[in-house]
Design a binder for these strands. Structure first.
Length: 620
RNA sequence: GCUCCUAUAGCUCAGCUGGAUAGAGCGUCGGACUUCUAAUCCGAGGGUCGGGGGUUCGAAUCCCUCUGGGAGCACCA
């Protein structure tokens, strides 16, 4: 319809200019919008205001001239000039309500567009290091990333979801060493007669107490007395303060005791560390994979950083291919100490960046250069989702992508961080005090629907205070249930109209139930109530919502839309009875038309929820 | 010192790349179930869009500047 109006206005402009009613001028955009106030019609054009300067005429006069030359347009009932020069288009009921039929015909394909033009886009997100469990922040990237991928797919992009596994750097050794020290401490305690559980408890209690002491010392402005906590002190000494201290490391060490007994205590240090590093890595990665799946977020590619250092059939690894490409363009140099540098200042970075350290080790950035080079061998466009704490890293990676020959094809979606609260209090990670909240624990306690809905519902550049007690509430303060309730209500009406029970509907599927309820045809022009018009208007916004959400990388808009659509339905439900009942006789054709409107609403609610990874229950 | 995000109703946030009288939810107050799911609906109240300049037919939106809040500025990963 929008295209038809655009064409009509252009034709009218031509005609008006030829007849001499308007001076000759070109306008790029006819400025077609949907008025906020329905009294102003279904569509409006701001073309008269936009062209006032070019036409050297008052906007209202231009608008009048255009309207006078407007060709006959099917589905348009009435055109008027309003306000400073808006041209408002009022559609006929049949035309405005046709969206109900379109939704029912297109089903889950409703709102699909070719906006993305099939561009191959890779979205990389979460990418938590495989040295610990996922936390709430990773959960936000899961909700944001997966929803963005869904909406971009719906908007016509060819999307690949990727998780980057940082399994190469020295943090992997630190991880292995951390487990190893805990393992030896457990072995020692058990050698003194403790059970495994007692030994674990001793280590965890020692750590908790030392954290409390550190906090207290900080408060009192004195040095903490570390010697009072022998296991923690020994742990920190052994690893030079560079350690993974979380309680889950004690759990991992205990698991290895269960698997191997104390047999690894006899091994040389490096062998023991390597064993724990590799096996701990696998366990963590498996658990991350499982948590992602629980969050309904599954990846196409799990990309290992180590693979960047594996030579291909020509004997060269990705890191050196990327280095070669940079060197060929003259973007690298070597300093006297032997370090290899990337001249990122050529691309606007504050300082040049080290790729290979003077001691011969590769930096994390070297991996990232190679990784992004590799990405561009596979896709046209790259979107990385990063936490706001990494924003200082954007310029150098962007510089590298440009230097490698892929300018303008790299993009970072920066997400602000999440504060985890419970009843208004910041949650401190402490397993012993029962406040350790990993993302899988959060999903189990709160549920995936409310968690994902809440995490995706704010713009990615807004901070989120995630209060577990608030998100858990199943009442009207929680918008996810408001939307789901609208869906469940519709399903109930359709079941009743079709004469089937909930169980039968489960068997048949709601699409089939709706078909039974509505029948083969429905005359939607019978829907003349204000609330019905509002419902049609909201549904017809869906395709532009998809495009805007994909374009702006802003899936949070889907939640607002879902709430608006649900609200329109609830209003409609209150005013318009769908099924005839005692005391409320309803014409059969009108009832059928309303059932069609219900079904269309149900489908779009379900579709919108599915795009953000939230279920659409058929009964609540 | 520099960089990024942010400031809109009591609270949490929208405002679709500059459009008509700035919206929604929660909270407050007042109404609506013998009736298709009341996890609902209807109504009322609530605003110097952080301050100050500028751009133009028109600014919450764009530009400059000041202020408050959050995050970051490694041959760490």
């Amino acid at each position: 319809m929008k295209d038809a109006i655009d064409a009509g206005i252009r034709a009218a402009l031509d005609a008006a200019q030829q007849s001499g009613a308007l001076d000759a001028f070109d306008i790029a955009d006819t400025g077609i919008e949907r008025p906020a106030d329905p009294a102003n019609g279904e569509y409006t054009s701001t073309v008269a205001m936009r062209s006032a300067k070019l036409a050297r005429k008052a906007p209202r006069a231009i608008a009048e001239a255009i309207v006078a030359h407007l060709p006959e347009m099917g589905g348009v009932d009435r055109v008027e000039v309003a306000g400073p020069g808006f041209i408002n288009f009022h559609l006929s009921k049949a035309s405005a309500n046709d969206v109900f039929n379109q939704v029912r015909a297109q089903g889950a394909d409703f709102g699909r567009s070719t906006f993305g033009g099939g561009t191959k886009v890779q979205v990389e997100f979460i990418s938590a290091n495989p040295v610990g469990p996922m936390h709430i922040g990773h959960g936000r990237w899961a909700a944001l990333g997966d929803s963005l991928c869904n909406v971009m797919e719906h908007a016509g992009y060819d999307v690949q979801r990727e998780y980057y596994i940082n399994d190469h750097g020295s943090q992997m050794d630190v991880f292995g060493s951390s487990i190893a020290v805990r393992y030896l401490q457990l072995v020692e305690l058990m050698g003194e007669g403790a059970t495994l559980d007692e030994a674990k408890e001793a280590l965890v209690a020692d750590r908790e107490a030392s954290l409390d002491e550190a906090a207290l010392a900080e408060e009192e402005g004195r040095e903490a007395d570390a010697a009072r906590f022998p296991f923690t002190a020994a742990f920190n000494d052994a690893l030079g303060g560079n350690a993974y201290g979380g309680d889950y490391v004690v759990d991992l060490a205990a698991r290895f005791i269960e698997l191997d007994g104390d047999s690894l205590a006899e091994l040389p240090d490096d062998e023991r560390i390597a064993s724990f590093r590799e096996r701990g890595y696998r366990m963590m990665l498996d658990s991350i994979r499982e948590t992602c799946h629980e969050a309904r977020c599954d990846f196409d590619v799990w990309f290992s950083e180590r693979s960047l250092y594996v030579p291909d059939e020509d004997g060269k690894d990705a890191v050196h291919r990327a280095f070669d490409q940079l060197a060929a363009m003259g973007h690298t140099y070597t300093t006297d100490d032997g370090a290899l540098w990337f001249r990122s200042t050529s691309f606007g970075d504050d300082k040049d960046r080290v790729l290979v350290k003077s001691n011969g080790e590769y930096t994390y950035f070297a991996s990232d250069v190679a990784y992004h080079w590799n990405k561009f061998q596979r896709v046209d466009h790259v979107i990385d989702i990063w936490g706001a704490d990494h924003h200082g890293y954007i310029k150098r990676v962007d510089s590298a992508c440009e230097a490698l020959g892929y300018p303008g094809r790299f993009e970072v979606l920066l997400g602000q961080l999440v504060n985890l609260l419970r009843g208004g209090e910041a949650v401190r990670m402490s397993k012993r005090k029962g406040t350790m909240v990993t993302f899988d624990e959060l999903l189990a306690e709160v549920g995936c629907d409310a968690t994902r809905y809440t995490l995706v519902s704010k713009s990615s550049n807004q901070m989120i205070d995630f209060d577990i007690e608030l998100v858990k509430r199943q009442d009207n303060t929680n918008p996810v249930y408001y939307v789901q309730y609208a869906h469940a209500r519709i399903c109930s009406i359709l079941r009743r109209a079709a004469g089937v029970t909930f169980e039968q509907a489960q068997e048949l599927g709601m699409d089939e139930v709706a078909q039974m309820a509505v029948g083969s045809r429905a005359d939607v022009s019978l829907l003349v109530d204000e609330t019905e018009a509002a419902l049609a208007r909201k549904l017809s916004e869906f395709s532009s919502l998809i495009e805007a959400s994909a374009r702006d990388r802003a899936p949070f808009r889907l939640t607002h839309y879902a709430e608006e659509l649900a609200a329109q339905f609830h209003s409609f439900y209150t005013v318009c009875h769908v099924l005839p009942r005692e005391g409320y006789p309803i014409d059969e054709d009108l009832s059928r038309a309303r059932l069609a409107a219900c079904d269309a609403t149900r489908r779009v609610l379900a579709l919108t929820l599915s795009l953000i990874g939230v279920s659409a229950p058929e009964r609540m």
